[in-house]
Design a protein around this nucleic acid. Sequence first.
DNA 1: ATGCTATTTGTACCATCGTACAAAAGAACA
DNA 2: TGTTCTTTTGTACGATGGTACAAATAGCAT
Lengths: 236, 236
Amino acid sequence: MARKPTSKETARKPNMREAILAAAEDLFATNGFNAVSVRDIAHAAGANPGSVTYHFKTKDGLLLEIYRRHCGPMNLRRSELLAAARRVRDLQDRLEAIVRAYVVPAFTSGSDLAGGGARFTRLRAVMSAEGNEVARKIIAQTFDDTSHAFIDAIHDSLPHIPRTDIVWRSHFLLGALYYSLVTPERVSRLSRGEADGSDAANAIEQMVQATVAAFQAPALDQAVPARRPTVASNKT
Amino acid sequence: MARKPTSKETARKPNMREAILAAAEDLFATNGFNAVSVRDIAHAAGANPGSVTYHFKTKDGLLLEIYRRHCGPMNLRRSELLAAARRVRDLQDRLEAIVRAYVVPAFTSGSDLAGGGARFTRLRAVMSAEGNEVARKIIAQTFDDTSHAFIDAIHDSLPHIPRTDIVWRSHFLLGALYYSLVTPERVSRLSRGEADGSDAANAIEQMVQATVAAFQAPALDQAVPARRPTVASNKT
DNA sequence: ATGCTATTTGTACCATCGTACAAAAGAACA
DNA sequence: TGTTCTTTTGTACGATGGTACAAATAGCAT
């Protein structure tokens, strides 16, 4: 929207646009989309409500811009890490590297801000829970490619597991990831203070460790001899 | 609120109160708390907006009543299943039984309605993501006991794993559970139609299989020789 | 300084929200 | 049938929501 980047433009004084984006990201990620008003965002950013309309036209537009801002860098970083992980020779190590390549960028942003990755991932978690339309569209068309790439990579390192099972398990991984960012205090509470749910480094290690084992679990078909009544479908 | 249960009371004709509860549960679980208006709920239930106020006083009161309705039966069923699971001799089988005791009631209600358990669990997932205050309070004081019971039971069957690790892994399980109920279509999409994310029986088996393996993963301490910079804290 | 453009402010409109409340309708029992 | 209590309806009020828009302001090139 700006025309004259005469060496400042991005580094204007307090840069309202960025402040609004950051405030919105924070509020949306914490309280959900509908619970936060444009006025709340403006107030948190030290801006005027009208300013939000000026920069992003609508509230949806603001959310859209947040996604645009993060999706590219995050997927890029994931792709890089995935490519590196695929080059690991040992299959066990490779699997761990792949999982790490998936998890790490979700906790720590690959581009600008410090905890930006975690904040944005939490935002995605919340939007997904709320069934937000804007988010749903972007997510499907932006992350599915990356998700498939990861699933394929994992499948390559675990050829004896049906792809369907890997899809389920990677789905569980994303759920665990989301939930860890949404309710970290629950971990602290249930561990009676022995663990800090907000400690990203620790969360990552725990998640990688558990997830690698989950992926390595035997496939479903050969594991459950006879029990459930309705399945009958999934196979490979 | 009713005074004369002359053998009907609960089984009145279309029972508005129940219809409102069901509609609210459904809408909240799908769209979140703030996105749904009292008028939406009334409309979906075929009731009058004022009727909601009459029965539940406030919108928060309505949510509260939904929780009250489900928490008891669900925890009861979980306790029963957990008690049965603890009696399993073989440690491997016992662990699986415990996980199943945790997962199954979340997908299928223990009391009345068919998919009620899944619907309520999804509702909890969404409320947790939105940071809903009413839900947060009830959850902590209603589910933490059960959660501790499960964690202890799992710890008993895996004595060599530090309790902290088990807390993390059970947290991941709940995240996976929530996410599977919130976005089942993602599983169908990523598996290119080979799996049905909405198939509860299949989801349960996949989740149990993966989670048991995750719990059985080696403890973190002995697994990560030297890597991260900040941890230093958790130990047992 | 002067004009030009990008931004910020202030305000106002209209829709919708949660909730209150009086009136109507129904149900149960004398 | 009339009385009483419960439930449902209809409507209204005040607050807050998203968004539009004119006026004010600030930066920059000339």
